[in-house]
């Protein structure tokens, strides 16, 4: 009988719109409130407060959906949902809380300490790593920056890059005695830039500058004439 009746009534406990229950209500099934419930509600399932429903009670449930009015504290093991018509005054303790546009709520929300701080800690951890990479790219643009020198001098990647650069350098500069100081200086930013310029200038300058100068001079002269 009970099972048949429950299936007929969609296995729900319903408090109709003209019903007032005052006292303690507990159970292991869904509860739909269209009337008033005052006191205390303890459920292991879902509490649904519909638009006409008014709950003035401390609520302990698994899942609460509020489309009506709730005055009191809600403690949910899973989720609390305030729908557009929902109005609530009280505190919410639940790992998941959804407050939709149109819902009105006054009170405190506690989602527990387990999830929030973990995410907060992960984000700072990723930021330093990004900033550590950033100086390498921005180093050429910002030689005077203070934080960068310590990072390069202390960081292992810098020495790894140096050997790679010096290898071609010596080959080109074997004739010149200048390279050794240039290799030693790279750790510092300004010198490294200067050395690179000087290194490029030594092999290249002779050929292109001459051609460029000749062409330019000829053109200029023609225009002047």
């Amino acid at each position: 009988m009970a099972v048949k009746n429950q299936s007929m009534f969609s296995n729900n406990t319903v408090v109709g719109p003209s019903i007032l229950i005052s006292g303690r209500l507990s159970g292991d099934e869904d509860l739909t409130v269209r009337g008033r419930v005052e006191g205390e509600i303890v459920l292991s399932h879902t509490l649904i407060v519909e638009e006409s429903g008014i709950v003035k009670a401390n609520v302990e449930v698994k899942h609460a959906i509020v489309s009506g009015v709730v005055v009191g504290n809600i403690r949910a093991t899973e989720c609390v949902e305030l729908t557009p018509g929902g109005r609530m005054v009280g505190d919410i303790v639940s790992p998941r809380v959804m407050i939709v546009d149109g819902a009105s709520f006054r009170g405190r929300v506690d989602m527990g300490e387990a999830q929030g701080p973990r995410e907060a800690q992960e984000r700072p951890a990723t930021k330093p790593s990004y900033t550590a990479y950033a100086p390498r790219f921005s180093s050429a643009l910002r030689p005077p920056s203070v934080p960068r020198p310590p990072l390069r001098s202390a960081s292992p990647p810098a020495p790894l890059q140096r050997p790679a650069a010096p290898r071609p350098m010596p080959v080109q500069r074997t004739v010149v005695t200048a390279p050794p100081p240039a290799v030693a200086s790279p750790p510092e930013h300004l010198p490294s830039d200067a050395d690179e310029d000087s290194a490029d200038a030594k092999p290249l300058p002779p050929e292109p500058p001459v051609l460029m100068d000749v062409n330019k001079k000829k053109v200029v002269v023609k225009k002047k004439k």
Binding site: T13, G16, S18, I19, L20, S22, S26, E29
Partner: peptide, 21 residues
Amino acid sequence: NTIIGSSIVIDGEISGDEDLV
């Protein structure tokens, strides 16, 4: 309209103007 399901326990007062199961 109003049904108190088989696993529900109410300790208190119920009043209203409609049928109650």
